[in-house]
Simulated assay, not measured.
Amino acid sequence: MTHPETQRHGDESASVSLCLRVRCLFAARNRRSRAEPHTEPMEKAVNLSLLYLRSRVPDLSSDPEEVAARLRGLDFTVERIVPLAELLRPIVVGRVESLTQHPNADRLKVCVVDDGGEQRLQIVTGAGNVQAGAYYPLVRSGTTLPNGTRIKRGKLRGEVSEGMLGSADELELGTDHDGLLTLAGEPAPGTPLPDAIPVDGVVFVLAGGADADEVVEALATGKRRETPPPNEDART
């Protein structure tokens, strides 16, 4: 039976898995709006990893406290500094047991994935490097990515996808977004990702409606954030 939300969107809907995979394939990453269609952004905050900020501002300090102080000095509100490992713990090891060509899309594959549970999950992906028998980070439906995007179950060209397989870029583990992050060895499916691979780094949770490009520009130029006047949202 089709989930009511999936049925409401119908076959024309595209889950975050497709959006992120297509973004990876065409190298069209848009950090300004980090929440994709059919996802649930977490309130009005932006999550930015230290890795991402340093990739955009090369001379930025590697010390999280120094970066937080610099952000506050530029009038950004740093709510929390969260270890990346904490945010990645809900993401688990998934083993692709089999994959088939999507019946309605040349660029997509339909994967049967073992997540350590009794039932197998169906994941649709457009990643070119996906292979049967390989291990990848598995982001199940209902899980939130480090950037604050909540992954939801959806239909991709008529095939249900119950989550997504992740790239290093999407998980804030690197800047490579050309394919999935392949996990070495044979880690047990269902293992939390930080228990399967080394995870370093932190994520800054910024409040106040900031966006990634605004933060990067301020860090690069040293100019304070331009905040809107009071009641700006109420003006017409």
Rank of each mutant, 00 (worst) to 15 (best):
S17V: 09
P230K: 02
G158Y: 06
P198L: 03
D63G: 02
R21L: 07
V113W: 05
E5C: 13
I151K: 03
V92I: 10
D195H: 07
N129R: 04
C24S: 15
E65M: 05
Y136K: 06
L88V: 07
G201F: 02
L180A: 03
S62P: 05
C111I: 00
E43A: 11
G208N: 12
M164H: 09
P137M: 01
G128T: 13
A134L: 05
A220D: 14
V160H: 03
V110Q: 03
T175A: 10
V205H: 06
V130H: 04
R56E: 15
E186F: 04
R56C: 13
R72Y: 00
G201E: 10
Q119M: 04
I91P: 00
E43M: 07
D200E: 15
A210W: 12
L183W: 07
R107H: 06
T144H: 02
Y136M: 07
G154L: 03
V78C: 05
N147A: 06
Y135R: 10
R23Q: 15
V130F: 02
D59S: 08
L193H: 06
R120N: 08
P58S: 00
A207W: 04
T221H: 13
G126E: 03
L25A: 14
I91E: 00
R21Y: 10
E172K: 06
L181K: 12
K223V: 07
E170F: 02
R34W: 14
L71I: 00
R54E: 07
R54M: 07
I151M: 10
T143M: 11
A220P: 13
F76D: 05
E172Y: 09
P192L: 05
V82L: 12
S161V: 08
A127K: 06
V110F: 00
E43G: 08
L138M: 11
K152A: 06
P146H: 01
L181M: 11
E65P: 09
G10W: 06
A196F: 08
L219E: 12
D63Y: 01
N104Q: 08
E5R: 12
D200P: 08
R150L: 14
L74M: 05
T191A: 07
L48K: 03
M1G: 13
P189G: 01
N147S: 10
R70V: 02
H9T: 14
R72S: 10
R140C: 09
R54L: 04
L60E: 09
I91N: 00
T6E: 15
A210S: 15
E172Q: 11
G208V: 14
G174I: 03
L165R: 02
S167H: 09
I197D: 15
R32S: 13
V57M: 02
V124K: 01
T2E: 15
R54A: 01
G128P: 01
S161Y: 07
E43C: 07
D200Y: 01
V46I: 13
D75H: 09
H38G: 04
G148E: 07
R70D: 08
P198K: 06
E162Y: 02
T77K: 09
I81S: 01
K152H: 11
